[in-house]
Design a protein around this nucleic acid. Structure first.
Lengths: 324, 324
DNA sequence: CCTACTCCTGCTCATATGAGCACTATAGCA
DNA sequence: TGCTATAGTGCTCATATGAGCAGGAGTAGG
């Protein structure tokens, strides 16, 4: 106990008051080596707990582990205590985190892309200030989604908040055939939006799992096409683009009848913020993170833990994002 | 928030995983200076909290502050949550801390002195193992104290546990006059005990305040003598020796009719463990600590906080203990 | 009594780090 | 436009620090 008390004193001087080990050694009449060993031992024995006062309900440890495991720029993990509750509540919290992050990191030189997803919509609703920058819709509107919340206007709304230009896509995400898709893509407004994809500096997307209820695209297809895509190994969907378990983009027939940014264009965006929450999506999150496309992941604690397990279980070849 | 998350990641890598700032800088693509600044800022902003898992119910922060303020070797402060309750309960907890400390730091080369006090008695009752070392009674028995708990035998009991020699004083602490005192001091058993005072390596004493109910010696004197001593500026009493508010030993008439170790001999003991608990004793604790005699203080959280205030209020000339 | 062993300590030297400075970029303002 | 203020950055060099090692104290076993 006497040891522990002394160790605590030393730790406080060192960690909190920033004293040098040499100073501490003199104060306590020890050699600096002894001080170093006491501190190391205290850390290893768990005598010292370093905790973090986060300004948001995020779990810094899970976040940091995810960041390190997948080579992300950062990961915001909704802390466990706040991860409970119905899915809509979880979505609201995830959206709030994303809103806060985007508000914080957006500058007036950004070009911001938004994919279609309920969580992204929640995010836009929670943003009330944003630098003057263009807002670009990354994919068509999912017909199956609830339109009553005026989600079609999300891009315009956010552009209104920002004061920048809006590049919406007033067309469905999934179309019956490639011909219709091509025609729509060449439509004046839509073509203009597509032309912005090369200028994007930030994108907010949602991660879907390739199973019922975990991807609005999945839910919109025929059972035949769902199965065909499943057979190709699709595990995850981002902006109607598919990825296998290793994070490789899959080119399937789907690619030709959706109105959405291409996987390549999305990969080229310097900052991709991906929202992927709720445990059933863990595998999909793992897959998308393996693609190296994501710079920031926003998820909940439970999904984070599951995803981390997947990361540990299967070796992860370092595939760093550009500029990291 | 993005900043905070990054800072937390960095702090975790640095503090918990022991990474060097250079490594962290490379990982995060920052300069090592930036990393240092982030860590400094995180500390200053209170983003990082260092907590301690103490193996005893002690408050490491109050203890460390007391230690630093008075130049002690250490201070054990009973944590606030456990400082509540009736005085006997508090005494039991303080005694338990002292028992644990003494058990831990005693070696077979020690000569241990005990002053008379209820808290010291509680301590001895809670000690069940001790290296083989002599136990020396530092002062006579306070007649007013409750004898039913066989406290007179404390020294013998502890010597029994230790297996070492016992040097008791079977005589009252306060005597009617100096002549009786001198005669008793020369009595065979008592003289032998007094001759051990020069060999003491550790002493456990209690701090009394010079007011009713806060010092058994005070309570044992006539009102006339109490007042006379008060007028001399006495604030604290340790082993029937008196100290003024500055921690200077006072020589009063009392010195000549008590059977106890002299202030000088007590000062010479390398390790003096002082028990001073309950808020009314804060001033006395402050006074005794100013004497530079104490190496270890054991107190409760409330008293510790009050004493700290006194230390801050009145400048404290550095008067370090020997060998520190 | 020695020997081998472990544990603990503090040393050397290469490396990491901090204090203070100089430089750049941006902003506010005349 | 140019000026100053301010904040942020990364440099130099003296200092602090860690890894690994060597010596000493204690100890169990021969």
């Amino acid at each position: 106990m006497a040891e522990a008390v002394r160790a605590a004193s030393i730790a406080r001087r060192y960690y909190l008051q920033g004293a040098t080990k040499l100073e501490i050694a003199e104060e306590f009449g020890l050699s600096r080596f002894k001080v170093a060993r006491i501190l190391d031992a205290a850390r290893e024995d768990g005598l010292i707990r370093v905790e973090f006062d986060m300004p948001a309900p995020v779990d810094p440890i899970l976040g940091d582990d995810l960041r390190a495991a997948y080579g992300l720029e950062r990961a915001l993990v909704l802390e466990r205590a706040t991860s409970r509750g119905p899915r809509t509540e979880l979505r609201r919290r995830i959206g709030a985190l994303a809103a806060r992050l985007l508000t914080e990191i957006a500058t007036d030189r950004d070009v911001i892309g938004l994919s279609w997803a309920r969580s992204v919509n929640v995010m836009t609703e929670l943003i009330d200030t944003l630098p003057r920058c263009p807002i670009v819709q990354l994919c068509g509107v999912q017909a199956g989604m609830d339109m009553r919340d005026r989600s079609v206007e999300t891009v315009s709304r956010l552009a209104g908040v920002s004061g920048g230009a809006a590049y919406p896509i007033f067309a469905p995400l999934v179309l019956p055939d490639s011909r219709t898709t091509e025609i729509l893509r060449r439509q004046p407004g839509i073509a203009e939006t597509f032309s912005q994809f090369g200028n994007l500096t930030k994108a907010v997307v949602s991660i879907g799992a390739w199973e019922a209820g975990e991807s609005t695209v999945y839910d919109a297809l025929s059972q035949a096409e769902r199965d065909a895509i499943s057979k190709r190994g699709a595990k995850a969907e981002v902006a109607a683009r598919l990825y296998d378990a290793e994070g490789n983009p899959l080119s399937t027939g789907l690619a030709h009848h959706v109105l959405a940014i291409s996987a390549e264009d999305l990969h080229r965006v310097p900052e991709v913020i991906a929202l992927g929450y709720s445990p059933p999506k863990a595998e999909a999150v793992d897959a998308v993170l393996r693609s190296g496309m994501v710079s920031t992941l926003i998820t909940d604690a439970e999904t984070a833990a599951l995803t981390l397990e997947l990361a540990t279980r299967r070796p992860l070849q370092p595939r760093p994002r550009r500029g990291q």
